[in-house]
Structure formats: structure tokens, C-alpha cells
Deep mutational scan, measured.
Amino acid sequence: MAAAAAAGAGPEMVRGQVFDVGPRYTNLSYIGEGAYGMVCSAYDNVNKVRVAIKKISPFEHQTYCQRTLREIKILLRFRHENIIGINDIIRAPTIEQMKDVYIVQDLMETDLYKLLKTQHLSNDHICYFLYQILRGLKYIHSANVLHRDLKPSNLLLNTTCDLKICDFGLARVADPDHDHTGFLTEYVATRWYRAPEIMLNSKGYTKSIDIWSVGCILAEMLSNRPIFPGKHYLDQLNHILGILGSPSQEDLNCIINLKARNYLLSLPHKNKVPWNRLFPNADSKALDLLDKMLTFNPHKRIEVEQALAHPYLEQYYDPSDEPIAEAPFKFDMELDDLPKEKLKELIFEETARFQPGYRS
């Protein structure tokens, strides 16, 4: 834990890192770190609560700039109880001085990944967590956004079992017609939660990839272990087919990539493993919904509104309290091709509203 900075004593240090967030945020305490930044909790002297502050230093890398800009653009436009918001952003007053960006968010005690390492969940908890994931996802999908990296560590939890989806750095506007060349190379989302079509096709992607990830998360809540822990690309596919069985001819016809289709045709026939054999203690309604989410063919996979209306979630289902976005989200430009200098300018502009004396 960093010592509390005395008023006016300059930035606090946390594990050798400068955290320049005073005077409003003090009493910093280390939480963890990701690929390009550290997260601390801090005391907000204005709202009198502890908050989470993520320090991001992305400006050396085009990919990190892209992810940072995506996350900020999306989260500043989203407003939903099951999606983490941005409360404040701290950065230098000029673009030349801006080396880091500090993002202030609600402090959540833990995440689903940490929880599943230590606790076996009751059916009631599984049901409530799944409902909140789908409630947040309904809003995301209504904005025409794909999260693309749903996994237990991106689901934040607090002691009252509130759940918030975080990390929109890989999110995209849904565009089933656009052929994202190089899709697989830039697709760094965790393999275990990846839909089979991501490994088999490169053309376009749809909201059904997020539903697949939610199915993987439900299976993990039922058993405290990942359902498809593939060691590499082909191993991942083999794990999936080992449980779902061989795809039907109709399902194979959806695979545009001939090499991928021929690979699947070359494999020995596998039978589907019954879900109640894998999860003998699970609620039968939970397994019915799991089956509809972990469907090989993305066109037959359940959609988020149908999933919310499934009998497993009937005690929570309330369409009048499951809000959607006001308007579909649009990125003005494809960020993939922009140089990091341009992305830095866009991050600077996007964060201006939090600067003292800002006038829109």
C-alpha cells in the first residue's frame, strides 16, 4: 500500500510507478496490472468513496492506442447498470505532455475469474450472474457493438453480487458484411471463450460470437473449470467437437473457408456428449439454455433477447427493466489503419471533457 500523499506533496508512487492523480484522489492501494497499465484503488475526496484507477501508458504502440481509444469512446457513450462506466479521466493539459491516461471507475471487490478459483456457486448465484451478463449484453448488442472478449476476468463483482462487464478494448461495431482481413492475426481474445466460426472463417462476425462466450462462462460457473481449455488453435476446435459432436452437413455448409471445411470433413465422426453427463448436478433449465448458447452453427445460436426470456431466468426476466441503447454506435473511421500519432490526438480530444474549465 502506498503511503497517503500529504496535501501538495506531488504524485504518489505505487510499486515504483508514478500515479499522478492528486489532489482529488489519494490513499492509493495496488490492485493489479494488465498488459499496459496498473490498477489501484484510491480515495475520492470529492465523492467520499474509494474508486478504481487504471493507469494506461499506450502511446508507444499502435495496438494499445487503438484499444484505449475504443474503450474510452464506447464506455463514455454507454450507460447501463451492468456495464462499468467511466467516472473521470485524468491526463496532462497538453498533448505533448500526455504520456499516461488515468481512467477512474467504480471500485468492484472482485471478478468472476477470482471468485470461481475459490468458491463453488449455488444455482441461485449462477442464475443471477447469468441474468446480469445477458442484461448488459442486450444493451451492448442493441448499440450494434460486439464485445468480443467476454470471459470471467472481464466480469466485475461486488459483495452485493452486482455484476458489471468491463474491458471493451477489443470491441467492434457489428459488421457481418465487412471482410476484416487479418482478423485472426489481430484477434487476441482469450482462445477458450472463442466461437468456432472465428477459427473457421475470417469473413465478418456477428453478435452470436458473444453468446458463445457467455455459454462458455455459464459452463464454467457450473463446474469451476473452463469447458474448452484448448492449448492452441486446432486443439481448441477438437475440444469443442469432442463435446458438441461432429457438425451436420448443414452446419458445414455455413463454413465459407474450404480449407477449414475440408479439415472438419477429414475428422472421424464424434457423438455429442449429453450435458447432464458433463454437469450431473446442474439445473435442467440451465443445461437447456447452455445447449442453445453453445450451438456450433452461429445462425442457430440463441440471441440475447431470447436467452433473457428463457425459463431458467424467469424469476428475473423483465423486458421493461432491460434497457437498450438510445442509438446504434458508430465509429467515424476504422481505427485499425491509423498511425499511433493520430490515435493519440483522438484520445486527447475524447478525454477533453474531463479537463478543468472544459467548454463543449
Rank of each mutant, 00 (worst) to 15 (best):
Q315P: 06
G204Q: 07
M333H: 04
H61Q: 14
L335Y: 03
Q97P: 06
E350Q: 10
E109L: 08
D100R: 10
H125Q: 14
N238W: 12
H125G: 08
K231P: 04
L278I: 11
A143Y: 00
V188Q: 05
M199T: 00
L218S: 10
E349N: 03
L163Y: 04
H180N: 15
A35R: 11
Q62Y: 09
W212V: 01
I302L: 12
M98P: 12
R15Y: 00
N82R: 09
M221D: 10
A92S: 14
W192P: 09
I227V: 02
A307C: 01
N276W: 01
T94C: 06
Y205N: 15
F279N: 08
G32W: 01
H141M: 09
N47Y: 15
L335W: 03
W212C: 14
H147L: 14
N253A: 07
D210M: 07
K259M: 14
N224P: 00
A174V: 14
V104M: 08
G85P: 05
K207R: 12
L222P: 11
S208H: 03
S41K: 06
I53D: 02
S360T: 12
K54A: 02
V188P: 02
M293P: 04
K164S: 08
N123E: 08
A42S: 14
L278K: 07
E303R: 10
N201M: 07
D210K: 10
D291N: 13
F279P: 01
P268V: 05
P58V: 13
S202T: 09
R91F: 08
A327L: 12
V39K: 04
H125T: 02
V21G: 10
N27K: 14
R79T: 06
V51E: 13
H178I: 08
T110D: 05
R67F: 08
P319A: 01
N271K: 12
V21L: 13
F329K: 07
L289M: 14
F228I: 15
K342D: 04
L218Q: 14
C161E: 11
R67H: 12
P319H: 08
Y131P: 01
R353A: 06
D162Y: 14
L234Q: 14
P11S: 13
R79W: 03
I217A: 09
G37R: 13
L28I: 00
E341M: 09
A189D: 06
D337N: 15
A7D: 13
N158G: 06
N144L: 03
M38V: 15
L264G: 00
H269R: 00
P311N: 09
H178A: 01
Y312F: 15
M38Y: 11
A309D: 11
F331V: 12
C127S: 15
E197F: 05
H232A: 08
A325L: 11
G22F: 05
G136F: 05
P268R: 09
N201C: 01
E250H: 02
D88P: 05
R77V: 00
Y205S: 12
L134R: 07
K99M: 14
M199Q: 03
L130G: 05
Q97I: 02
Y36S: 15
R91P: 05
F19A: 09
E303N: 04
G357T: 01
T351E: 05
Q119R: 10
S208E: 01
V273E: 15
E109V: 13
Y30Q: 03
Q119A: 13
K344V: 04
L150S: 12
I165Q: 05
E322N: 03
N144G: 01
M38D: 14
K231E: 10
Q236T: 01
C166H: 07
L265D: 08
V51M: 11
M38Q: 12
D111F: 09
L294G: 04
L200C: 02
I31N: 14
A35V: 12
F168G: 03
H141I: 05
H120R: 12
D337L: 10
I89Y: 07
S142W: 03
T190K: 05
D235K: 07
M98L: 14
T68L: 12
N27E: 01
I74L: 11
D321L: 06
K342M: 07
K99Y: 10
S213K: 02
C161D: 01
Y316D: 12
T68R: 14
D332F: 08
N144E: 03
F168E: 02
A282W: 07
Y317I: 06
R225S: 15
G242F: 09
A282D: 14
S153H: 05
E350R: 02
I211Q: 06
C40F: 13
L116I: 06
G230W: 05
S246I: 13
N158R: 09
G169F: 09
R353T: 02
